[in-house]
Design a protein around this nucleic acid. Sequence first.
RNA 1: GGUGCUAUCGUCUAGUGGCCUAGGACAACGGCCUCUCACGCCGUAAACCCCGGUUCGAGUCCGGGUAGCACUACCA
Length: 548
Amino acid sequence: MQSQKFFTCMERRVRVRFAPSPTGALHIGGVRTALYNYLFARQHGGDMLLRIEDTDSTRFVPGAEEYILEALDWLGIGIDEGLRQKKGTKEIEAVGEHGPYRQSERREIYHQYVKQLLDSGHAYIAFDTPEELEAKRAEIPNFQYDARTRLQMRNSLIMSAEEVSELMAKGEKYVVRFKVEPNEDVHVHDLIRGEVVINSNILDDKVLYKSADDLPTYHLANIVDDHLMEISHVIRGEEWLPSAPLHVLLYRAFGWQDTMPQFAHLPLLLKPDGNGKLSKRDGDRLGFPVFPLEFHNQKDGTVSSGYRESGYLPEAVINFLALLGWHGSGDQEMYTMDELIKDFSLDRVSRSGAKFDYEKGKWFNHQYLQLRSNEELAQMFLPVLKEKLASVNSPLLSTLNAQLSTIAKVIGLTKDRVNFVPELWEQTNFFFVAPTEYDEKSLKKRWKEESPRHMQELMALLETVSEDDWHKSYEATDDNGNTVIRWHLDDVVMPWIAAHEYGVGLVMNAFRICLVGAARGPHIWEITNILGKEETLKRVNDALKIIG
RNA sequence: GGUGCUAUCGUCUAGUGGCCUAGGACAACGGCCUCUCACGCCGUAAACCCCGGUUCGAGUCCGGGUAGCACUACCA
């Protein structure tokens, strides 16, 4: 067992976390990070935590937290500890012994650790205002607040204790900065990239805490929480790799190096065209969602499209995302969540960024759509259908719920040609609404001079078929010995065509145009079967009047 | 500018020194099936960033270039 082997070498329970900021909709790259964390946790029988990192009060967006939890729930990424949706509801619950799980609710906890760092001399208080820092940066190219410059700044390193407490008593805003010791090679062992070494000279004295809003910054809160929550592995995006040495230094300053989590930095999701990180704008520009669910941003009033609303199935999104930057142990491409959990391994995560290939996502959705039952798809299609029928004032609208089995049947005939549920409309509309226009291209190619006469004769012939026989079909064997469905109408129409030497293609395509309005769609007898005798004959009649 | 990471078909990737005449999937193209459009099936085209080195042998190891990306905030 892989998990056993893992435990014997680590001797530590696997606990991972997904820790998003509630600054807007959850980006699809974030979803992948959450997924990999989840897969890793499940594979090792460990815990998946969800923590909200809301230490930047200015960037908070209402509804973002609910959005994140709903998105994970929709995708089937389960949360064991921390914040999650109460089963079957949208209500948020906090579970676990390590709470609170919102950083804004952990202020007192951080106070204690800020003090520890101050007391041990690993941090100091700085009074430089944002304006002063800006001026400094303008004045000195590549200015960095570090060992070389900190003694020229306004901080507790150069002030007396009285001076510092006086300023603080006056209510002057300050920050606490981490005191990075210069010229030390910091080693970070990354599970995906191996050993990464960075010299501490390039690190600046990062702000750990700001008195203005009485909150820590990401770096401090992250390390404290991961430690307190007993996180064993930090699996996060590659954008964090440059600050990983700082985090290592923080663990050391706290004296927590023995229980420091292992790091794994995931490659980034890149734009499909050109270069750079995938962004919200790319989705708008190229016409595909970059968010799991549609999001109405209450802060700036924007609406972003989502995978769910675009007709994606969650299992398709999961499968697609899983394979963007990771590959299985073999050539398998279709993976259920359980199979992913079994086969997942950090060893097989790529090191280079992956361009977001939307076309492949469509293909995955097509595959999973075929796996869903017609009845299920009918339920999903119903809202789309209602909207479409309402727009043409169809009398069918009122009886739609009663027609569910027919809708399912229609979907069964057409689902193999769509990638998304809403596309079903273009493939099935003629079942619900009789054509009023006839596709020009089809007419030019398939509607010949003799077609009206053929249709007249065909109508007369079909008129003789009983209502019962109209819908009859049976199994037959074709020339190659395969079992095929043969319709009663075949036995009526084919001999007639043969006797008059009209040509099967000519007659059938003209017939199809009358029923569908174009040269497309499923097998013709499947169509007549669903339309019924009366509607079929009516459509031919109407067509003759219009295109005659 | 500095630091780090990365580098195989258009895209996602397999490849851990000889199984590589570089494999799979998406997309593209062609064919088959067929009353149509699709689906499906079969097939075609398509890549080791460059230069050195190590080695009997390099896509694979090493060095140097080059390119791309990320980071460089009192944002995460």
